[in-house]
Design a protein around this nucleic acid. Structure first.
Lengths: 221, 221
DNA sequence: TCAACAAGTATCCATTTGGAGTAATGTTTC
DNA sequence: GAAACATTACTCCAAATGGATACTTGTTGA
């Protein structure tokens, strides 16, 4: 059985998707979440063996949107396949979702058969499901010249860190401890620690090592 | 009527494709070419009004291959849609074809219906036709962090870490603590700790964060 | 003007970590 | 066979970390 989690703020959407999937008994619903925040919290509480294989993620949700959730979760749970399932098809959303770690991008207008077919295929061959019109936009993204020199800079606002927090994270990544950072930035070690804990919350982690993992893999530093 | 040109060195392939298209009377064959060179020459001699709307281009042909032909022709004839139709699906060919100006990439294994469907769609909506498995590869190209940059895979033995130590470092980088690593590797947390301290000594650091910094920046993980 | 929020400071407390030992197994190499 | 090393495991201890909570001070936006 393929465990699938559904993240969507609209209860009706969740129901529709659940219905679509339930027509095929290869899928079982791992859990539902109403936004990225909810998803990440539920994931953390979930026993490892109950984690979903595939996550269908809407974009544009309150609290934490799908892109951010994928960004965080794809670092924390690298084995899980994140598939965007949404009505949005603008280049920016597609690009950011892929960069964040989505392995597929489906439009909600797709039929149940197509969606199930593609998810089965994802499970069997690992090939991410992509709606045709989306595929073409992705191609255009590749086609676009890299513009000016190197920009390769991941969205620094992906996690909504404040300037100070980004600064602290930067110093943290250099292997400095609280005291060292404190003296470098002329604030109290207590404050550094406070910042760190705030950063962890925004990144949905609870240790320095995990935070650095995300920082490194998402290009925050 | 949509004028289609076919470029393929194998006469049999050309015949198969022609047959596939002829089942639908929206398409008419503009001309055939046996390689990129031949294609470009014929294009030059062709009256503007007879130019094809769509070109189905194989890769790997004598004289001038498909990628080069697309590169040249997409500059000379920007209104023509170039679609790769081939059996090759390796990342490099896909990437270079797209960069050269291909607006679609189809595998020959696709059925006539799918190909015709996608070409119709290209004509109507401008969306380039892309085989699903290719779409996923394109997505991965976008996903790839640097791609064309300096990769310089560092010598993994640079620090003379033992196999076990590399393994521990790997797990460490995933944000796991001693206990978690211990249970994953079936050894005592004490031993994990001992390994870590040994690793720190070899890396000449004295904290997890510093070790991870080196691991990330030196490509040890 | 009030609310929200970033930023700074602090304390308490439990857990985690790093450091320095000791020591028993095995390999491998000379 | 002995030296060198990898792997395993343990103890004691001091320091660092993370979480929770409380407070003040600015700035910004509704």
């Amino acid at each position: 059985m393929i465990r699938v989690a559904i993240v969507d703020d609209k209860i009706n959407n969740r129901k529709v998707i659940t219905d679509k999937l339930s027509r095929n008994n290869f899928f079982t619903l791992a859990f539902q979440a109403v936004n990225g925040e909810d998803f990440l919290i539920q994931m953390r509480q979930l026993p490892e063996d109950d984690r979903p294989h595939i996550v269908l993620m809407d974009l544009e949700m309150p609290e934490i949107d799908g892109v951010s959730a994928i960004g965080t979760a794809s670092s924390l749970y690298p084995d899980i396949k994140f598939v965007v399932l949404t009505i949005f098809d603008d280049d920016d959303k597609i690009f950011r979702a892929i960069k964040a770690g989505a392995c597929g991008y489906l439009l909600k207008e797709e039929s149940s058969e197509v969606i199930i077919d593609m998810l089965m295929n994802l499970w069997e061959s690992g090939a991410g499901p992509i709606s045709p019109s989306i595929a073409y936009k992705i191609l255009q993204i590749v086609q676009r010249p890299v513009a000016a020199g190197e920009k390769e800079k991941a969205d620094p606002n992906l996690f909504q860190l404040s300037e100070r927090e980004k600064e602290i994270l930067q110093l943290l990544s250099q292997g400095l401890d609280y005291k060292e950072i404190a003296s470098k930035v002329f604030i109290s070690p207590n404050t550094v620690k406070k910042h760190c804990i705030n950063i962890y919350q925004k990144l949905h982690v609870n240790s320095k090592a995990q935070a650095l993992r995300i920082a490194y893999t998402k290009g925050l530093i």
